[in-house]
């Protein structure tokens, strides 16, 4: 199969993720969209690894997964804490840190 198709799929996933981050208010959904973007990036890495015939991309993809896993832990904890104090999971409600 043409490797370019994987790239197109990756771009689509990334776009969906980015639009989701920008448009959705629910922190959990925004978080999932961030994961989507990360995995789109992983797909690109693996695809290029395949195209170039090297393993670098695949190794970096593993790193990204590890980082993503760590991020999930921290991120969910943050979201949970915010929800407990403010009774809301909307990212627009958390806007105290401003000018």
């Amino acid at each position: 199969m043409n490797p370019a198709n994987y790239l197109i799929l990756s771009a689509l996933l990334f776009t969906i993720g980015a639009v989701g981050v920008l448009l959705r208010r629910n922190a959990i959904v925004v978080f999932m969209c961030v994961e989507l973007m990360l995995n789109a990036a992983n797909l690109t890495l693996v695809t290029f690894s395949r195209i170039n015939g090297t393993l670098d991309g695949q190794i970096i993809a593993f790193f990204v997964m590890v980082v993503a896993a760590a991020e999930v832990v921290i991120g969910l904890a943050v979201i949970l804490t915010i929800f407990r104090t403010r009774r809301s999971a909307s990212v627009d409600d958390v806007n105290l840190l401003k000018y």
């Binding site: 980015a18 981050v21 920008l22 448009l23 208010r25 925004v30 990212v91 627009d92 958390v94 806007n95 105290l96 840190l97 401003k98 000018y99």
Partner: peptide, 17 residues
């Protein structure tokens, strides 16, 4: 310039994008 610091995380995300 400081008016751009809105506190809305999504607008920061947009500027990053």
């Amino acid at each position: 310039l400081r008016r751009t610091q809105t506190g809305f995380v999504r607008s920061y995300a947009l500027s990053m994008l």
